[in-house]
Design a protein around this nucleic acid. Sequence first.
DNA 1: CTGAAAGCGCTAACAG
DNA 2: CTGTTAGCGCTTTCAG
Lengths: 340, 340
Amino acid sequence: MVDSRDVARFAGVSQTTVSRVLSNSPKVKPETRDRVMRALAETGYSRNAVARAMRTRRTGTIGVVVTRITNPFYPEFIQVLSQHLDRLELRMTLWDAEGPGESNAVEAIRQGIVDGVIFTTALQDSAALREALQRRAPVVLVNRTVQGLQCDQVTSENHRAGHMIADYLLRAGHRRIGLLAGPPEASTASEREAGFRGRLAESGLLLHPEFIRVGDFTHEHGHESVRAWFGTGSRGPTAVFCVNDLIALGALDGARARGVRVPEDLWVVGHDDIQMSSWEAFDLTTVRQPIGDMVETALRMLLARIERPDKVPEFCRFPSELVVRGSTAHHPAQRALSAS
Amino acid sequence: MVDSRDVARFAGVSQTTVSRVLSNSPKVKPETRDRVMRALAETGYSRNAVARAMRTRRTGTIGVVVTRITNPFYPEFIQVLSQHLDRLELRMTLWDAEGPGESNAVEAIRQGIVDGVIFTTALQDSAALREALQRRAPVVLVNRTVQGLQCDQVTSENHRAGHMIADYLLRAGHRRIGLLAGPPEASTASEREAGFRGRLAESGLLLHPEFIRVGDFTHEHGHESVRAWFGTGSRGPTAVFCVNDLIALGALDGARARGVRVPEDLWVVGHDDIQMSSWEAFDLTTVRQPIGDMVETALRMLLARIERPDKVPEFCRFPSELVVRGSTAHHPAQRALSAS
DNA sequence: CTGAAAGCGCTAACAG
DNA sequence: CTGTTAGCGCTTTCAG
């Protein structure tokens, strides 16, 4: 493998000059630059990124941690992020951490393998995360946040989303309402749930304990829950809020399995507006977050923090909007009438 | 940041000895090792992976290139790979390359950023790939392969899958058969198509040109195609083979949009058996590949090639199996009767 | 069993 | 504008 010293010899300059040309230093005589450029091309030189990283203490790679990459939300997230990184000539090291796998990523920062990490699936009690922040490791939380953590964080209006959905269901006349909750340590789940229950409570509605089920962010959770509600002879809720779309898709499938008609017998609402939610098979009413903006902001924050580790942490919450589709009646008024 | 020199000072040994302890060298007196271990713990040392990589010329990171991470097939792939890598204490740098983005990954090998690359979405005519191989860059192709390329490759019986499906449809009495093909440069698409058409031809069946549509591996392709076939008043095929599941899910949704009943009016068959295919909403008949084995084999090949760049390339093709579900009649005999 | 010394390929003062 | 020099933190001979 040819190194910059070889190129220098070839061009008849010092190795330093080659390095200068490579980093577009303005103080190289055009003539010399040309000669070096030619030498670069003719020798087929490629810069050794590891040696470079060793000197500069920057790898040009950032870490991304997700918890279950098969949840379609994360591929959508990664796709957007990937486009930004390409543009910036940066790279992404991905960890799909089942359980508290943040430690791998945190350790990678310490080892200088990545310049910083974006966590998409932080939990409230992550020790690894707290320790990393104490060490001023460049870290950004996006999607799931952690209350009171001195850390850059980006999310959307989860609490308000819960409000919107509660209002929407109440206004349509629903009283037998179900909730498919997520892990309470996940801020997305707990905030959406709190917003939802809070608004219902304000309207004097207390959810029937049977109609609240806690589970993972999985299709199975939605599927099993709805099947349980509508088991032989039992009377389930008339509407259900699932704290994310994957659960909601499971709920729709559970309804299908039981012959429960959506939206006639059951309204289903999710959160995230993943691409699949708009497919005919589901046509899911859900809440859309501005994922592009969220990713862009998180990345910007991370890069800024890598530059200035002592920067004061930002917290950014993006607005989200209800997207009404066929899994709830398109015209709430109709439902309100028939339910009253 | 504390380095191994600091640890050495702390433990009262040479920096070399610290390095030896870190790499589990057997020739360190247990007593000394203990002392170093304690120093390691007390100083909170983390090995600088970049300096290490510079010396050893190994980063412990492998690259993975996919073409559209939102195709659920790839997350499933990555999930399995990720587990293996964790176990081996390796990492993954991911490129989601829309178009011919292999060049980023190939360049990363040259720059020493990754030790090797797994390509999941190679195309027949990738110049970057050919060039990389010429340079003996450690590269493995999995899923999509390239005919005649001197390179480790792993795939499944795509051609036979086409056969199986053709046989299955013919035996059920179908004559008006559709094909939703993929990009011809993708071996998976072209092999499945060739197998399918070949077997139909052997049975004297020539596909109606209208019933063959070429597109990307997208939901939209399937969706649009079926909608076009079953537009107002037109008579579509009675069965369709989609070269992957994502297209098939689109086809199912297109059928739904047109009020075409599956399987009564239309049989739909896919390929890959992604998790979603088994969901009630789709219940898709498809072909399952042993994805775990494929990933494991590809990784093994890559690691072997990193060790021995001149190893003779292996080509590995795994068996796959037809998984019959509700998108085709569960009892082919019934259909055969009603169609005859 | 342990240490001294060399150097991976690059960038960044510093000197001219 | 260009070159000399000094490391970045580690692994790895080579001596002892």
